[in-house]
């Protein structure tokens, strides 16, 4: 369990570094911090003074960071420069949609990606394999906004099966509206999963332990799942950080493409309006999610591979 403890410490250190970088965004923007925070508001002495007070601009930089970080721990990132709404509230309002999109997309990608990856590996070099591989190459080469536009064109414009934009009313209708965006997200993610699963599975099927299992009559089901897939999943777990990064990027582009008011769209809007405080809040959230996923991956890895779990050495 020392392994976990060390990872926890590393994650904490990373979080602190990231927070420093995020705090620095305010000063990285062109113009003075005061000017940036002022945004498009009228610049009289009173508002300037208010801003300096509210964001401790007169304090030394380290103190400023400290005060900012203290608030950030309580998830208080200040108020949006654009709307004056607390950043946390804005994030809360938008998070649900993004989470649903992510969960829906991931579920589809997971089932399709692992399933097709295993299938392609078992039928290596066959027509099915080539088709699956081609699909995954196209998926990895298609940015989410292009996939989105093509799906919209085919399923919404040509066939009229799905709505073009909007979120829908009621649970079923919302799911309906989310289907094209989720499929778009899943297309890119599944491409990665197919790639990792297929490669892992082909490698595993080629190993001596699989041949030996067959050579002593172990049932084919047990060979495929207990021997091959079990080992093939280890590199897939390791690659899940790459998957997360791809899905986060995809989600941002998808929300813009389908005009969904999620966190991604909020980030893009805030960036466009130079709403630095909102960007800080969102970036911090993003960093935390990435670091947590990393941590989760490490724990999963621990379960997947006993060689990491135990450190006993051969006598």
């Amino acid at each position: 369990m020392i392994f976990i403890a060390r990872r926890l410490v590393a994650a904490a250190v990373l979080l602190v570094i990231m927070s420093g970088a995020v705090f620095g965004l305010l000063y990285a923007s062109p113009g003075s911090a005061e000017q940036v925070l002022l945004g498009t508001r009228v610049a009289n002495e009173e508002t300037r003074e208010n801003i300096r007070q509210r964001y401790n601009l007169d304090e030394p930089l380290t103190t400023q960071y400290w005060l900012w970080a203290k608030d950030a721990v309580r998830l208080d990132f200040g108020e949006s420069i654009r709307t004056g709404e607390p950043v946390l509230n804005a994030i809360k309002d938008r998070a649900q949609l993004s989470l649903r999109l992510g969960a829906y997309g991931f579920a589809v990608a997971f089932v399709a990606g692992i399933g097709l990856g295993v299938l392609a590996a078992m039928r290596n070099r066959s027509g099915i394999d080539r088709a699956v591989v081609s699909l995954s190459v196209v998926g990895a080469s298609s940015p989410a906004f292009v996939t989105g536009v093509f799906l919209l064109y085919v399923f919404a414009v040509l066939l009229g099966w799905f709505p073009v934009f909007g979120q829908g009313e009621g649970a079923m209708d919302q799911l309906w509206h989310l289907t094209l965006p989720a499929l778009t997200l899943a297309f890119g993610a599944a491409a990665l999963l197919i790639r990792f699963t297929r490669a892992g599975m082909i490698t595993a099927l080629d190993q001596d332990y699989v041949t030996f299992a067959r050579a002593r009559g172990v049932s084919e089901g047990r060979v495929l799942f207990g021997y091959a897939l079990r080992n093939a999943m280890i590199p897939v777990v390791t690659a899940s950080t790459v998957l997360l990064a791809a899905m986060l990027t995809g989600a941002v582009l998808i929300e813009v493409t389908f005009a969904l008011p999620g966190l991604g769209a909020l980030l893009v809007d805030s960036v466009a309006f130079k709403d630095v405080l909102m960007v800080q809040g969102l970036t911090m959230l993003l960093a935390a999610v990435a670091i947590l996923t990393n941590l989760l991956t490490d724990v999963l890895y621990l379960f997947a591979d006993p060689r990491i779990r135990y450190t006993r050495v051969a006598p």
Partner: peptide, 20 residues
């Protein structure tokens, strides 16, 4: 390792957004 864990495009979006 750090760069691998970072969603690259999002970082770019933030940086470009903030820096212009």
């Amino acid at each position: 390792d750090l760069m691998y864990a970072v969603p690259g495009l999002l970082v770019t979006i933030v940086l470009i957004g903030v820096l212009g």
